[in-house]
Design a protein around this nucleic acid. Sequence first.
DNA 1: CTGAAAGCGCTAACAA
DNA 2: TTGTTAGCGCTTTCAG
Lengths: 348, 348
Amino acid sequence: MATVTLKDVAELAGVDVSTASRALSADKSSLVKRATRNRVLSAAEELGYRGNLQASALRRGRTATIGVIVADLSNPFIGPVLRGIANALGNRDLLPIMTETRDSSDELARICDKLLAQRVDGVITTAGRYRDRSLLKRVASEVPTVLAVRELPGSGIPAISHDDVAGGRLAAEHLLSLGHTRCAQLMGPEDIWSFEGRGQGFREAIAAAGATCIDITGAIRLPTVEAGLDLATELLDRSGRLPTAVFAHNDSMAIGAIGAFRERGLEVPADISVVGYNDVPLTDQLRPPLTTIRLPGYELGRLAAELVLTRIDGVESTAEKVVLAPELVVRQSTARPAADTVGHVDPN
Amino acid sequence: MATVTLKDVAELAGVDVSTASRALSADKSSLVKRATRNRVLSAAEELGYRGNLQASALRRGRTATIGVIVADLSNPFIGPVLRGIANALGNRDLLPIMTETRDSSDELARICDKLLAQRVDGVITTAGRYRDRSLLKRVASEVPTVLAVRELPGSGIPAISHDDVAGGRLAAEHLLSLGHTRCAQLMGPEDIWSFEGRGQGFREAIAAAGATCIDITGAIRLPTVEAGLDLATELLDRSGRLPTAVFAHNDSMAIGAIGAFRERGLEVPADISVVGYNDVPLTDQLRPPLTTIRLPGYELGRLAAELVLTRIDGVESTAEKVVLAPELVVRQSTARPAADTVGHVDPN
DNA sequence: CTGAAAGCGCTAACAA
DNA sequence: TTGTTAGCGCTTTCAG
C-alpha cells in the first residue's frame, strides 16, 4: 500500500517528473508530445496514481477548497443552499469544506482559525451575527469571503442574501389585505440580519397602513418551536387586546405559536392567523397547512459560490450585494379576522 | 498581506525554524527552554502567525481531516449524526470535510476520489448502497473507513448503525399489540441496508404472529413524500382486502401515505393506522401526530467518529460492528383496527 | 518538447 | 536545549 507518487509514474513512463507533471495537468498537457503523454497516462493508470493535493497546494499556493460555514445543519432551509454551493463549486472542481457553528461565536472563531490554517481559497458563511463583525472582517482580509443568507451591514463584505425586508412586508401586506388591523410579530434572535430585516419590513408595512404592530422579543437564543411557544405565551399573557394575526420569524416558531394558541383555546386561523417564514418541508402537511414566505435557497447558494469564485479570480468589481426576492405562499393558517374578534377578544 | 511563515517567526525570535516549530507544537514544546518558547510564542503572536496545515500535512503524512459522506443533507435525520461526528472530531482537533452524494453512485465515486486526493486521514460514510460495495472496499483499503447508518454486509468494513431489523420488529409488534392482523409495508429504495433491515424485521415479526404482511415495492429512487404517496396509491389500487395498518419506511413516506389515504376518504388512524420511521422534527406537529421509530443519531455519529479515530491510531481490534437500539414513539397515527374494518373494507 | 533545479512551509532525525 | 540537514510530493522557471 506504499502510496504511489509522481516520481513512480515518471520512472515507469521513462520520463522526468516534470514531464509527467505536465502530462497529467489539464491545462499544460498540450505542452507534451502526444506519445509521451499517453505513456505517462497509462503508467499512472497502471500504478493507480492519485495526485497529492496537499503537495500540489503547497507548491501552487492554492488548495482548491472553500470553507463553508453554517449556523445550523439541522435547519431544513440550509440544505438547498449547501447544494447550490456544492454544485457551483463542483463545476470548478473545488471542494467545499462544510462546518457548523451552532450559532456560537466561539465556535465560529475556532472554525475560522481552522479554515484559515487549512488555507482554504475562499470562505462562504451563513453564520455571521452582528457581534461577529470584526472576526469576519479579519477573515475577509485574509481570504476572499462572501456572506450568504445573513448580511453584516457595515462590514464591507460582499453578500448574497434574501430580501428579508421585502419578506416581512409581504407577510404584512397579506395580513392587511385580509383585513387585519392589529398584528404582532414574534421576533427571531437579535443580532442577526435576517430577523432584523423581517422585523423591520413587517413593522413598517403595518405602520404605513395605519394598523397596529406589536413586537414580541424574548431572550431567544435559537428560533425553535419552543421559542415560538414561549413568545406566543408572552403575547397571550400581555394585558390589552390580543392581535388577530401573528407573524413568526420562521416556520418553527410559527408552529410553536400555533401550539400555544391552541392550548389557550384559540383556533388558527379562525381566532388568530399565523404566518411563518422559510417554507421548510412539511409545513404544508401541518394542521393547518402554514402560510409562509418561501426563499430561493438553492439559487442563493449558487450565487454565493459564484461570487467567491470571481473574487478568487481576482475580480473585485463584482456587485457587492445581491438580494433575492422572497415569495408569499398562502395556505390555510391565515384568514380574515372573525367579525367579533376585531377589537375585543378575551385571551382566556 | 504577505503570509507569514515559520521562518519569519523564527527570525524575529532569533532562533532556528526547527526550534520555532518545536516551541509551537503542542507535544514537543517541552523540549524547548521556557524562555525561548515564550520568545517564539510572542513573535508568532506579534506577526499573526498561522501554521500552514498543508505544509505540515505534507511533511507528517497526516492531514488532520476526515472525509464525511452523506447521501442527503436535507434529510433532517442527518443533522444530529453530523453533529455527533463533528463533536467527537473537534475534541481531537480534526476537521470533518462533509460532502453529499444525493445518493448517486457516480457522485459518490467522484467524491471518494476527491477525498482520497485530499489525503483525508479517514472516511465516514452514510451513503453506501449495495452497488457501491466494491468502490467503498477500495476506499477502505486505502484509508481507515467506517460505515455509519447504513451497513454494507459482506464488505468487511466496520460499521456503526441502527438496528433496523429491531426497528421494523418494533413497528410490527406495536401494530400486532393493537390487534392488527393484516398489515402492509411501503418499502424504501432497494439496495440500501437500512430499508432492507426494516423490511425484514417487520415482515418476520408479522409472520411470526401468524398475521399477513403485504410488501409494496415500487421504483422508488428516494424515500420522499411523493414516493410514499405513490406506494400508498399502489396499495389502494391493489385488488383484495386492504390492510388495517401500514408501516412506511420513513416519516416522509408516512406523510405521503397519509395524504393518499385521506384522498380516498380513509381516516388515519380510524380507518387505517400508519407508522413512520426516524422521528424527524415536526412529526409530532402533523395531523395526526405520527407514531414512529426514533433513532439515536447523535450517538451514532459520535461512535462512528470514535471508531475511525481508533482505526487511524492503528487499533484494528475494535468491534467491527455496532448496532444501536431504536425506540418506539407512540403518537396518534395508530389505533386499534375498527371492528368492522377487520377483514372487509372497501377502498372507495 | 523535455530535463534539471529550485523550492512551497514545515517536521524530524541527527548532531552538537 | 538548540541548530543542521534532509526531505514530504509537487510545479515551475530556465535551459537545452
